[in-house]
Design a binder for these strands. Structure first.
Length: 762
DNA sequence: TTCTCAAGAGCTCAATCTTT
DNA sequence: AAAGATTGAGCTCTTGAGAA
C-alpha cells in the first residue's frame, strides 16, 4: 500500500484544553502573543466543524508545492504564503526576533526548574505526556502550578497546532518555559518557516507544522469560498481563521481544478500577481538543503533525470499554453481517443507542478540545481497518498462518488447552511460574483479580457447610488459635472493640509469606506467653522501623525536606521502633534485624534474639562470577543501624549522664564531655541497650574455602525461633529442617517470656498 | 582531527475511527 | 462486519555540537 501522508495539525486538542483552563490561567495567557488565537479556541469562535474536511483541499494544494521556489504553483503562477498572511490568519505577531529551531541554539539538553519538576527522567515530550501533566496541575492553586499550566498549554498548542511533530522540540520547551518573553519573537515567521521546512522535505509521509494554515490561506487569498456570515470584518490582531469554513472550501474545491485557482487569486487581488515568488529569508536554508543532497547522493546520478525533467517541462509547458489557447478538447482529440478525453484531461492536473511552472527570471540560471527538488513531482504526484485521500475529483471531474456522503452531512452543519450569496458583497470589496469555471477551456482572449476589464470596471452609474439620490438637483448637477470632467486629477476640494480627490467622492457616494484624507479634510472644515462661530474650541490632530507613531512591536531594523527613523519620527510628531497641541491646548476643550489602523477607524478624544481621554469605536460589538486592537493603538497614543505632557510640564518654568522653547528643526542634531508665541505661553502656564494626569477609557455607549457597513470613517467624523459642537451623541443611528451625513459632507465640500467650481475648469 | 551522545528526522505499527 | 483511513506514539537511524 502506498505510504500514507500524515497530517498532525488539529484544532481539537486545543479546543478541549481551553475549556479546562481556569480564570487564573487565562489571565496569564492573555499576556502571551498567542492569546488572540487561544481566545478564538476558548470562546468557540473556532469550532471543530469549521475545521474538518480540510484534508482533500490541503493535499491538493500541497501537490502544487515546489520546494525550489518554496511556493505553490497554480497554473502559471507561483504564490507563497508570507509572514504577513500567517500573522493575519493566526493572529500572531509578525515582527520581532527570529525563533531559532534546531541544534544550533541549545547545544545540550535544556534544563530548568520547570523541566526538572515535570520532565525529569523523560527523554521525549509527547502530547500524551503534556496533557496528562496539565490535567494533574489544573486544580492546584500555587502560583508555580498556575504558571506551569500556562507553559503546558502553550506547549500543547505548539505540538498539536502550530509546530506539530510527534515530539516537541526542546527548543520550543524553552520558549514556553520563559513564556513572559514570548512576545519578543516573530511567531508568524516561525510558523511559516517550520511549515515550509516540512513541505520542502524529501519524504512526505507526514506534514509537520501548521498544515491547516494552507487551506485557510487559500480561503483568505482567493474567492473560492465566502466568509461565514457575520464574520466578514476582522480587524487588528484577531486571527482571521475564524472567518472560514473548511468543509465549505472542500465542497467548492471539488468543483474546480487546481489550474483554475490561479484565476481566483486574481479576482480578489485585482492586480496581476507576478510569477516571481516572494522569497522569505529561506535562501540560507535552501542552500543547506542543496548541499546536503549533493553530498549524499552525488550529482551525476541525476543528470539524466534532470535532462528529462527539463525536456518534459518544455513539452508540458507548451502543452499547457496550447491548451489554454486552443480548446483543450480539440487538442486532446487529435492525440487521444475520444473516450479517454475526460480522464486524460484531468490526469494532467497532478502534474501541474511540472507542467505549469514558468521559471521566474531569476531562476533561469539555477536549472542545474533543480534536480533533487524536482524528483518529487517526477515520482508521479509527489505526495503519495492512499486512495481515500486522493480526492476523486482530482482524477476525474465527473460527479465524485464521495460527494453524496459529504452532501449528506453538510446541511447538518449549522455553519454551512448559511446562504453564501447573501454574504457576498457585505465585505464591501467583494462586489464580484464568485466565478466557478468547471470547464477548463478558456481561451487566451477570454483570459486577457478578464484581466483587463476587472480593475477598470466602472462604478455603477451615479444615479443609482443612494447617497447621490439624496442630493438636491443643484448638487447632483455639480457632482455629475465634476465626474464627467476630463482631467481626473482635478481635486474636489483642497485645503491647507488635506484634499479630496475624485476617488474620495466616489467612495462617499458609493457608500464604501472613505480614506483618511477625507477625515483630515473634514477636520479642517470643522476647524474653520469654529473660528467663525467660536462655540466650543477644539484641536484636530491630523491622521498623518500615525506615520510617525511607531507601534511597539514593529521594530526590526539596523541600529543606524533606527536612529535615523527616530529623528524622522520626532520631527514629524513635533510638526503634526506637539506643536499644534502646544499652540492650542489652553483654549481647546476637546482634542481629537482619529485613530487610523489597518482595517478600521476609531476616535480618541481628550476632553480637557473632564480631564479624561475617551476612545470611541463605531464597531464595539466585534471587539467584545477579544481585546480591542484599536483601543490598544489608542492607548499607545495616549501614553505618548501623556509622556509629552509630563516632559513639557517639567520644562515649562524654564521655557516661560526664557520665553523660548527648544526645538528640533531638521535631521541634524542641534536643537534651536525658538521664541514662544502667546498661545504657547498660555498652554505652558495652564500646564503648570493643572494636574495633567488624564486617564483613558473606552467608551461603551456611542452609537454603532451596522455590522456590514463600511461607515467607520463616517462615524468618526460624526462623533467629531457632535462632540465639537457640544452636542450629545445619539443612542442609535441608522444607515440612512449615515447616508445623510455623506450627502451633507459632499454639500459642505461643494459649498466651501475651496470646493471645486464648475467654471474654474471650463 | 576524531569520538561521543543527545536531539532531530524518518519510519513503523498498533489502536481507533469511518466508510462501505 | 470487514476494509480502509486516521491517529498517536514508539523505535531507529542520522546529524552535529562539544569533548578529548
Amino acid at each position: 500500500m502506498a505510504p500514507y501522508c500524515q497530517i498532525r495539525c488539529s484544532v481539537l486538542p486545543m479546543l478541549e484544553t481551553m475549556q479546562l483552563l481556569k480564570e487564573s490561567h487565562l489571565e496569564l495567557l492573555q499576556k502571551t502573543p498567542f492569546w488572540p488565537l487561544l481566545e478564538a479556541f476558548h470562546n468557540g469562535t473556532v469550532s471543530e466543524l469549521q475545521c474538518k474536511d480540510c484534508r482533500t483541499p490541503l493535499l491538493k494544494i500541497i501537490k502544487t508545492f515546489n520546494p525550489e521556489t518554496a511556493s505553490f504553483h497554480f497554473g502559471t503562477r507561483a504564490i507563497s504564503i508570507n509572514t504577513e498572511d500567517i500573522s493575519q490568519i493566526l493572529g500572531l505577531p509578525q515582527h520581532g526576533d527570529t525563533v531559532q529551531f534546531g541544534h544550533l541554539v541549545y547545544r545540550r539538553s535544556y534544563k530548568s526548574d520547570f523541566t526538572e519538576r515535570h520532565f525529569k527522567g523523560t527523554d521525549r515530550v509527547s502530547h500524551k505526556l503534556l496533557h496528562g501533566l496539565l490535567l494533574k496541575l489544573l486544580n492546584r492553586k500555587e502560583q508555580t502550578d498556575i504558571e506551569d499550566v500556562v507553559r503546558l498549554t502553550l506547549m500543547e498548542l505548539f505540538i498539536t497546532f502550530l509546530f506539530t511533530r510527534p515530539h516537541l522540540q526542546l527548543v520550543l520547551v524553552k520558549y514556553c518555559d520563559e513564556f513572559d518573553k514570548l512576545s519578543r519573537y516573530s511567531w508568524a515567521a516561525a510558523v511559516g518557516e517550520f511549515l515550509n521546512r516540512s513541505l520542502k522535505a524529501k519524504s512526505k509521509v507526514e506534514i509537520k507544522g501548521c498544515a491547516l494554515l494552507i487551506p485557510l490561506w487559500l480561503c483568505e487569498k482567493t474567492n473560492i469560498t465566502q466568509p461565514i456570515s457575520g464574520r466578514e470584518i476582522i480587524e487588528g490582531n484577531t486571527p482571521s481563521l475564524i472567518r472560514w469554513s473548511l468543509p465549505e472550501l472542500n465542497m467548492k474545491m471539488q468543483e474546480i481544478t487546481i489550474c483554475e485557482i490561479e484565476r481566483l487569486f486574481e479576482v480578489q487581488n485585482g492586480i496581476e500577481l507576478e510569477i516571481k515568488p516572494e522569497h522569505e529569508n529561506h535562501e540560507g536554508e535552501e542552500e543547506e538543503l542543496k548541499k546536503k543532497d549533493t553530498k549524499q547522493k552525488g550529482r551525476e546520478l541525476y543528470q539524466p533525470l534532470q535532462k528529462e525533467i527539463v525536456e518534459r517541462r518544455k513539452v508540458q509547458k507548451n502543452d499547457y499554453e496550447l491548451n489554454v489557447k486552443n480548446n483543450f478538447k480539440d487538442k486532446l482529440k487529435a492525440e487521444v481517443d475520444g473516450d479517454m478525453e475526460l480522464i486524460e484531461k484531468d490526469q494532467l492536473d497532478p502534474q501541474i507542478p511540472c507542467t505549469a511552472i514558468q521559471l521566474s527570471p531569476g531562476d533561469d540560471n539555477k536549472v542545474p540545481q533543480v534536480e533533487h527538488q524536482m524528483r518529487l513531482p517526477m515520482e508521479g504526484t509527489g505526495v503519495k497518498v492512499g486512495k481515500q485521500q486522493l480526492d476523486p475529483d482530482f482524477v476525474c471531474n465527473v460527479v465524485p462518488k464521495r460527494r453524496k456522503a459529504k452532501e449528506q452531512h453538510a446541511p447538518s452543519d449549522p455553519i454551512l447552511t448559511v446562504p453564501t450569496r447573501a454574504i457576498q458583497d457585505s465585505a464591501g470589496k467583494r462586489d464580484e460574483q464568485i466565478i466557478i469555471i468547471v470547464d477548463d477551456s478558456v481561451s487566451e482572449e477570454e483570459k486577457s479580457t478578464r484581466k483587463v476589464k476587472r480593475p477598470r470596471k466602472e462604478w455603477s452609474p451615479l444615479e443609482r447610488c443612494e447617497v447621490f439620490k439624496l442630493l438636491d438637483d443643484e448638487y447632483q448637477q455639480k457632482v455629475k459635472a465634476f465626474w464627467s470632467m476630463t482631467n481626473p486629477k482635478e481635486l474636489f476640494w483642497s485645503g491647507k493640509n488635506a484634499s479630496v480627490a475624485r476617488e474620495d467622492v466616489k467612495k462617499l457616494i458609493q457608500n464604501t469606506a472613505v480614506a483618511s484624507n477625507v477625515i483630515d479634510a473634514f477636520m479642517e472644515l470643522l476647524e474653520q467653522k469654529q473660528h467663525q462661530s467660536s462655540v466650543k474650541q477644539s484641536t484636530y490632530i491630523s491622521t498623518l501623525c500615525w506615520n510617525y507613531v511607531r507601534m511597539k512591536d514593529a521594530r526590526k531594523k539596523g541600529k543606524k536606521d533606527q536612529v535615523q527613523d527616530e529623528v524622522h519620527d520626532e520631527v514629524g510628531l513635533n510638526q503634526l502633534v506637539f506643536d499644534p497641541l502646544l499652540g492650542s491646548m489652553a483654549q481647546s476643550d476637546y482634542i481629537f485624534f482619529p485613530v487610523i489602523s489597518k482595517f478600521h477607524y476609531t476616535l480618541l478624544v481628550l476632553n480637557k474639562n473632564e480631564k479624561k481621554w475617551t476612545h470611541y469605536n463605531p464597531l464595539r460589538k466585534r471587539s467584545e470577543l477579544h481585546i480591542d486592537p484599536c483601543y490598544e493603538v489608542a492607548k499607545q497614543m495616549h501614553q505618548l501624549i501623556q509622556e509629552w505632557f509630563h516632559i513639557t510640564q517639567k520644562e515649562a518654568p524654564r521655557a516661560l522664564l526664557n520665553g523660548t522653547k527648544r526645538k528640533k528643526l531638521g535631521k541634524r542634531e542641534d536643537r534651536m531655541e525658538v521664541p514662544l508665541s502667546e498661545d504657547e505661553k498660555r498652554t505652558l502656564t495652564w500646564m503648570m497650574d493643572n494636574n495633567i494626569d488624564f486617564k483613558i477609557e473606552n467608551d461603551r455607549i456611542s452609537p454603532q455602525q451596522d455590522f456590514k457597513s463600511l461607515d467607520c470613517g463616517i462615524f468618526v467624523m460624526y462623533y467629531m461633529n457632535q462632540l465639537s459642537q457640544g452636542l450629545q451623541l445619539e443612542k442609535e443611528i441608522t444607515e440612512c442617517r449615515m447616508r445623510e451625513f455623506r450627502k451633507n459632507l459632499i454639500k459642505l465640500l461643494l459649498d466651501h470656498e475651496n470646493g471645486w467650481k464648475q467654471t474654474s475648469t471650463t
